[in-house]
Amino acid sequence: MENENQLLDINHLHTGFRIKDDFYDAVDDVSISLEKNEILAIVGESGCGKSTLATTIMGLHDPNKTKVAGEVIYQDLNLVDLNEELYNKIRGNDIGMIFQDPLSALNPLMRIQDQIAESLIFHTKLSKEKRYERVLELLEQVGIPNPPRVAKQYPHELSGGMRQRVMIAIALSCKPPIIIADEPTTALDVTIQAQILDLLKELQEENGTGIILITHDLGVVAEMADRVAVMYAGQVVEEAEVGELFNNPKHPYTRSLLNSIPQMDSENDELHVIDGVVPSLVKLPRKGCRFAARIPWIAAEEHEENPVMHEVAPNHFVRCTCYKNFHFEEGGE
């Protein structure tokens, strides 16, 4: 699949965490790619491995406690094999990252301007004056009123929305072609969330950035994404264009999730509940369909022994065969 628009190509990526003496994969054989000018949403509930995937791409895991295998190809480089020194040239410069809680993600003792200028120190040869000019430019770009003043302030002096704008400015500072946004609006109020999402989208369209948007909020996905990958228990279980995914969801997990959203029109109906709980990393079944235990009324032979992705429509992939005859439990609770 050679494609000149392709920014990032992830193949068979595994990230295992050490628990006692064994490694357990939190990201288990994920293959996915990101193109230029695209927002790829990765959606799933807590513990599905979506944030681990993000930190793996950034190479931020402690090598003593994690084992990473597979490929993250960026410009003919496999990031997984890079040494620290080379990786530092990529981080911030080619891939920017935005975190969930902008208050804890900013250093409380550093002025805003120094935090934004920091990536410029390590990736550009700009003089100090030029760096601060760029800082003001960036603050302006992310819609912060009165940049010269804010530049000299500390994180605690800003509101949540403003802090997240600062985080975006940091991520944008070296104009990276890729941005990873890990739950960028979860800690914010809805009206602020809307503003931040609009800003991200605008900046993305302006610069042709590819964004990996990690979120648990299907509403945010529907508003923002071009393509969506749904993760469950460390694996991608469904991947499709955003319209296709919401209008024609196939995997039982995707369908169940969509049914459990309390939405505007479902008013007094009972919400759908998925039986059981997500198994812990250690107890996760490593064989067979991982969702099988949550839909016990589906016969065992509907599942594949080693579930793989099936292309059910152009560019719409679903893991395991159980989607074919899936139905919700009749007269269920």
Partner: peptide, 22 residues
Amino acid sequence: KRLIAAIPEIDTENREVHKANR
């Protein structure tokens, strides 16, 4: 009105309409 307009909606076809409204 602002609060309601700001809620992300699961309606991918009308996302532009929704945005314009917001």
